[in-house]
Simulated assay, not measured.
Amino acid sequence: MKFKCFLSLMSFHIANISSVFITFDKFELSYSFTFDKMSYLTEHRLQFISGISVTHCVKECAARTHCKALRFRNRINVCELFASSLQDLTLTTGSITLQEGEQNITKSPCQDNCKYGEVCETNESDVSTCVVKECVNITIPENGFILGNKRDIGKRIRYKCNVGYVESNAEIGTVAECLYTGDWSTFTECIPSKISYMWTTWTEWSTCSVSCGGGVKSRSRTCTIPTVALNGEEECEENMYTGAGASCNKEACTCLP
Protein backbone atom coordinates (compact mmCIF):
# COMPACT_ATOMS: atom_id res chain seq x y z
CA MET A 1 0.00 0.00 0.00
CA LYS A 2 1.38 3.43 -0.96
CA PHE A 3 0.35 6.97 -0.07
CA LYS A 4 1.55 10.52 -0.47
CA CYS A 5 1.22 13.17 2.25
CA PHE A 6 0.34 16.81 1.83
CA LEU A 7 0.38 19.58 4.45
CA SER A 8 -2.00 22.44 3.72
CA LEU A 9 -0.63 25.91 4.57
CA MET A 10 -1.75 29.49 4.01
CA SER A 11 0.94 29.95 1.37
CA PHE A 12 0.87 28.55 -2.14
CA HIS A 13 4.53 27.63 -1.76
CA ILE A 14 5.31 23.97 -2.44
CA ALA A 15 8.22 22.19 -0.78
CA ASN A 16 9.25 18.66 0.05
CA ILE A 17 10.26 17.35 3.49
CA SER A 18 12.37 14.34 4.34
CA SER A 19 10.57 11.06 4.89
CA VAL A 20 9.10 10.29 8.31
CA PHE A 21 9.52 6.84 9.86
CA ILE A 22 7.09 5.79 12.60
CA THR A 23 6.15 2.69 14.58
CA PHE A 24 2.64 2.60 16.03
CA ASP A 25 0.50 -0.30 17.24
CA LYS A 26 2.78 -2.84 15.51
CA PHE A 27 2.71 -0.91 12.23
CA GLU A 28 5.99 0.31 10.81
CA LEU A 29 5.40 3.14 8.32
CA SER A 30 7.39 5.62 6.31
CA TYR A 31 5.97 8.57 4.39
CA SER A 32 6.92 12.03 3.11
CA PHE A 33 5.11 15.39 3.21
CA THR A 34 4.44 18.00 0.58
CA PHE A 35 2.95 21.44 1.30
CA ASP A 36 -0.26 22.08 -0.57
CA LYS A 37 -3.95 23.01 -0.25
CA MET A 38 -6.50 20.28 -0.87
CA SER A 39 -9.86 19.00 0.30
CA TYR A 40 -12.09 15.91 -0.03
CA LEU A 41 -15.57 14.83 -0.99
CA THR A 42 -17.30 14.18 2.34
CA GLU A 43 -19.68 11.59 0.87
CA HIS A 44 -16.67 9.25 0.58
CA ARG A 45 -15.66 9.67 4.22
CA LEU A 46 -15.24 6.37 6.07
CA GLN A 47 -14.44 7.56 9.57
CA PHE A 48 -14.45 10.74 11.64
CA ILE A 49 -12.20 10.18 14.67
CA SER A 50 -11.49 12.92 17.21
CA GLY A 51 -8.88 13.19 19.94
CA ILE A 52 -6.09 11.18 18.31
CA SER A 53 -2.63 12.11 17.05
CA VAL A 54 -1.55 12.45 13.44
CA THR A 55 0.55 9.28 13.87
CA HIS A 56 -2.53 7.38 15.03
CA CYS A 57 -4.49 8.82 12.11
CA VAL A 58 -1.90 7.62 9.59
CA LYS A 59 -1.95 4.19 11.22
CA GLU A 60 -5.77 3.98 10.96
CA CYS A 61 -5.54 4.61 7.22
CA ALA A 62 -2.69 2.10 6.88
CA ALA A 63 -4.85 -0.54 8.59
CA ARG A 64 -7.38 -0.35 5.74
CA THR A 65 -6.61 -1.33 2.18
CA HIS A 66 -9.74 0.62 1.23
CA CYS A 67 -8.47 3.87 2.76
CA LYS A 68 -7.41 6.03 -0.19
CA ALA A 69 -6.85 9.32 1.63
CA LEU A 70 -6.93 11.02 5.01
CA ARG A 71 -7.19 14.50 6.40
CA PHE A 72 -5.89 15.38 9.86
CA ARG A 73 -7.00 18.74 11.24
CA ASN A 74 -4.14 19.47 13.56
CA ARG A 75 -5.78 22.47 15.20
CA ILE A 76 -8.57 20.34 16.68
CA ASN A 77 -7.00 16.85 16.47
CA VAL A 78 -9.60 15.37 14.13
CA CYS A 79 -8.83 12.47 11.80
CA GLU A 80 -10.93 11.79 8.70
CA LEU A 81 -10.48 8.69 6.54
CA PHE A 82 -11.74 8.56 2.95
CA ALA A 83 -12.45 5.82 0.42
CA SER A 84 -11.64 8.11 -2.50
CA SER A 85 -8.51 9.81 -3.75
CA LEU A 86 -7.77 13.45 -3.10
CA GLN A 87 -10.13 15.94 -4.71
CA ASP A 88 -9.00 19.45 -5.53
CA LEU A 89 -12.25 21.17 -4.53
CA THR A 90 -11.66 23.83 -1.88
CA LEU A 91 -8.74 25.40 -0.06
CA THR A 92 -8.12 23.98 3.41
CA THR A 93 -5.63 25.35 5.91
CA GLY A 94 -4.16 23.89 9.09
CA SER A 95 -4.56 20.26 8.04
CA ILE A 96 -2.39 17.36 6.92
CA THR A 97 -3.71 15.39 3.98
CA LEU A 98 -2.55 12.03 2.70
CA GLN A 99 -3.45 10.27 -0.51
CA GLU A 100 -2.28 7.32 -2.55
CA GLY A 101 1.26 7.87 -3.67
CA GLU A 102 4.49 7.42 -1.78
CA GLN A 103 4.01 5.83 1.63
CA ASN A 104 5.40 2.41 2.45
CA ILE A 105 4.24 -0.03 5.11
CA THR A 106 7.36 -1.93 6.08
CA LYS A 107 5.54 -4.04 8.66
CA SER A 108 1.88 -4.86 9.31
CA PRO A 109 0.63 -7.02 12.25
CA CYS A 110 -1.84 -8.67 9.88
CA GLN A 111 0.89 -9.40 7.34
CA ASP A 112 -1.14 -7.72 4.58
CA ASN A 113 -3.78 -10.48 4.71
CA CYS A 114 -6.76 -8.15 5.12
CA LYS A 115 -9.18 -8.07 2.21
CA TYR A 116 -10.66 -4.94 0.71
CA GLY A 117 -13.13 -3.57 3.26
CA GLU A 118 -11.49 -5.18 6.30
CA VAL A 119 -9.55 -3.44 9.08
CA CYS A 120 -6.40 -4.80 10.74
CA GLU A 121 -6.91 -4.68 14.53
CA THR A 122 -5.02 -5.94 17.57
CA ASN A 123 -7.09 -7.12 20.56
CA GLU A 124 -6.26 -7.22 24.28
CA SER A 125 -4.58 -10.59 23.83
CA ASP A 126 -2.16 -8.99 21.39
CA VAL A 127 -3.63 -10.99 18.52
CA SER A 128 -4.05 -9.16 15.21
CA THR A 129 -7.00 -10.01 12.99
CA CYS A 130 -8.83 -8.62 9.97
CA VAL A 131 -12.26 -7.32 10.95
CA VAL A 132 -15.12 -5.93 8.86
CA LYS A 133 -16.03 -2.59 10.43
CA GLU A 134 -17.26 -0.46 7.54
CA CYS A 135 -19.20 -0.59 4.29
CA VAL A 136 -16.94 0.63 1.53
CA ASN A 137 -18.53 0.21 -1.88
CA ILE A 138 -21.12 2.96 -1.72
CA THR A 139 -22.64 3.94 -5.07
CA ILE A 140 -24.12 7.39 -5.53
CA PRO A 141 -27.08 7.09 -7.93
CA GLU A 142 -26.90 9.00 -11.17
CA ASN A 143 -29.29 11.97 -10.99
CA GLY A 144 -29.40 11.61 -7.21
CA PHE A 145 -27.44 11.98 -4.00
CA ILE A 146 -26.95 10.46 -0.54
CA LEU A 147 -27.88 11.82 2.87
CA GLY A 148 -25.48 10.76 5.65
CA ASN A 149 -21.77 9.96 5.57
CA LYS A 150 -21.33 7.33 8.29
CA ARG A 151 -19.96 4.01 7.05
CA ASP A 152 -19.72 1.99 10.29
CA ILE A 153 -21.56 -1.31 10.74
CA GLY A 154 -25.16 -0.54 11.72
CA LYS A 155 -25.13 3.01 10.36
CA ARG A 156 -27.65 4.13 7.77
CA ILE A 157 -27.77 6.37 4.73
CA ARG A 158 -30.68 7.55 2.61
CA TYR A 159 -30.83 7.73 -1.18
CA LYS A 160 -32.56 10.77 -2.69
CA CYS A 161 -33.26 11.66 -6.31
CA ASN A 162 -33.11 15.01 -8.03
CA VAL A 163 -36.25 16.83 -9.12
CA GLY A 164 -37.84 15.04 -12.07
CA TYR A 165 -36.60 11.61 -10.94
CA VAL A 166 -37.96 9.01 -8.55
CA GLU A 167 -36.34 6.14 -6.65
CA SER A 168 -36.72 2.81 -8.43
CA ASN A 169 -37.47 1.03 -5.13
CA ALA A 170 -39.35 3.83 -3.38
CA GLU A 171 -42.17 1.44 -2.46
CA ILE A 172 -39.86 -0.62 -0.22
CA GLY A 173 -37.82 2.26 1.14
CA THR A 174 -34.63 4.05 0.24
CA VAL A 175 -32.78 3.77 3.56
CA ALA A 176 -29.71 1.52 3.39
CA GLU A 177 -28.04 -0.03 6.46
CA CYS A 178 -24.40 -1.07 6.66
CA LEU A 179 -24.55 -4.82 7.37
CA TYR A 180 -22.00 -6.83 9.35
CA THR A 181 -20.89 -8.40 6.04
CA GLY A 182 -19.67 -5.00 4.86
CA ASP A 183 -22.47 -4.67 2.31
CA TRP A 184 -25.26 -2.12 2.11
CA SER A 185 -28.74 -3.56 2.60
CA THR A 186 -30.21 -1.87 -0.48
CA PHE A 187 -29.46 0.38 -3.42
CA THR A 188 -31.65 2.53 -5.62
CA GLU A 189 -31.55 3.99 -9.10
CA CYS A 190 -33.06 7.34 -10.03
CA ILE A 191 -35.38 6.94 -13.01
CA PRO A 192 -37.31 9.69 -14.83
CA SER A 193 -40.77 10.31 -13.44
CA LYS A 194 -43.78 10.63 -15.74
CA ILE A 195 -46.78 12.71 -14.75
CA SER A 196 -50.04 10.78 -14.74
CA TYR A 197 -53.03 12.92 -15.78
CA MET A 198 -56.57 11.81 -14.95
CA TRP A 199 -60.07 13.11 -15.53
CA THR A 200 -62.13 13.89 -12.47
CA THR A 201 -65.62 12.38 -12.23
CA TRP A 202 -68.45 14.22 -13.91
CA THR A 203 -70.22 16.85 -11.86
CA GLU A 204 -73.95 16.57 -11.25
CA TRP A 205 -76.24 17.80 -14.00
CA SER A 206 -77.15 21.44 -13.66
CA THR A 207 -80.75 22.61 -13.35
CA CYS A 208 -82.53 22.78 -16.69
CA SER A 209 -82.41 26.22 -18.24
CA VAL A 210 -86.23 26.35 -18.61
CA SER A 211 -89.11 24.54 -16.96
CA CYS A 212 -90.79 23.63 -20.25
CA GLY A 213 -90.54 24.02 -23.99
CA GLY A 214 -87.13 22.47 -24.32
CA GLY A 215 -84.03 23.60 -22.50
CA VAL A 216 -80.53 22.44 -21.80
CA LYS A 217 -78.60 21.20 -18.83
CA SER A 218 -74.87 20.68 -18.49
CA ARG A 219 -72.16 18.96 -16.56
CA SER A 220 -68.34 19.08 -16.70
CA ARG A 221 -65.09 17.47 -15.65
CA THR A 222 -61.50 18.69 -15.42
CA CYS A 223 -58.08 17.17 -15.85
CA THR A 224 -56.05 16.73 -12.68
CA ILE A 225 -52.61 15.40 -11.72
CA PRO A 226 -53.34 13.04 -8.82
CA THR A 227 -49.85 11.60 -8.48
CA VAL A 228 -46.43 11.21 -10.04
CA ALA A 229 -46.35 7.71 -11.47
CA LEU A 230 -43.34 5.73 -12.63
CA ASN A 231 -44.93 4.80 -15.95
CA GLY A 232 -47.98 7.04 -16.16
CA GLU A 233 -49.48 8.12 -19.46
CA GLU A 234 -50.93 11.48 -20.41
CA GLU A 235 -54.60 10.59 -20.57
CA CYS A 236 -56.28 14.00 -20.83
CA GLU A 237 -56.90 16.17 -23.85
CA GLU A 238 -54.82 19.21 -24.56
CA ASN A 239 -57.35 21.73 -23.21
CA MET A 240 -57.48 19.81 -19.92
CA TYR A 241 -61.23 20.52 -19.70
CA THR A 242 -64.38 19.01 -21.17
CA GLY A 243 -68.06 19.69 -20.81
CA ALA A 244 -71.27 18.02 -21.95
CA GLY A 245 -74.82 19.25 -22.55
CA ALA A 246 -78.19 17.57 -22.89
CA SER A 247 -81.71 18.69 -23.70
CA CYS A 248 -84.27 18.72 -20.94
CA ASN A 249 -87.90 19.65 -20.19
CA LYS A 250 -88.99 19.08 -23.77
CA GLU A 251 -92.71 19.14 -22.91
CA ALA A 252 -94.65 21.97 -24.46
CA CYS A 253 -95.59 24.73 -22.16
CA THR A 254 -99.37 24.90 -21.33
CA CYS A 255 -100.98 28.31 -21.28
CA LEU A 256 -103.39 28.86 -18.43
CA PRO A 257 -106.92 30.23 -19.39
Rank of each mutant, 00 (worst) to 15 (best):
K2N: 10
F3V: 09
S11F: 06
F12Y: 08
F12E: 07
F12G: 14
H13C: 04
N16C: 04
S18L: 12
S18M: 05
S19I: 03
S19Y: 06
V20M: 07
F24G: 00
E28R: 14
S30N: 12
Y31R: 01
S32N: 10
T34E: 14
K37E: 07
K37S: 05
M38F: 10
T55A: 05
C57H: 00
C61K: 02
H66K: 06
C67M: 06
C67A: 12
L70Y: 07
L70S: 09
F72N: 00
R75K: 14
I76L: 04
E80H: 03
A83Q: 05
A83P: 01
S85W: 05
L86G: 03
Q87L: 08
D88L: 11
T90W: 09
S95R: 03
T97N: 11
E100P: 00
Q103G: 13
Q103F: 14
N104V: 13
K107N: 14
K107L: 05
G117F: 06
C120W: 02
C120A: 03
C120L: 04
E121H: 11
N123A: 10
S125T: 12
S125Q: 13
C130Y: 06
C130D: 02
V132M: 09
V132H: 03
C135Y: 04
N143A: 06
G148M: 07
G148K: 07
G154R: 04
R156H: 11
R156E: 12
I157A: 01
Y165V: 02
E167H: 14
S168N: 14
N169L: 08
E171F: 11
E171V: 06
G173D: 05
V175R: 02
G182F: 06
F187G: 03
E189N: 13
I191N: 00
I195R: 11
I195P: 05
I195K: 13
S196N: 10
Y197P: 04
M198L: 10
T200S: 14
W202V: 00
S206F: 00
T207W: 02
S211Y: 09
C212Q: 03
G213Y: 03
G214Y: 07
G215F: 00
V216D: 05
K217G: 00
S218G: 04
I225D: 03
T227R: 13
T227P: 01
A229T: 06
E233F: 04
E233K: 15
E234S: 12
E238I: 12
T242V: 15
G243W: 10
G243M: 09
A244R: 11
A246P: 02
C248P: 01
E251Q: 15
T254S: 05
P257S: 09
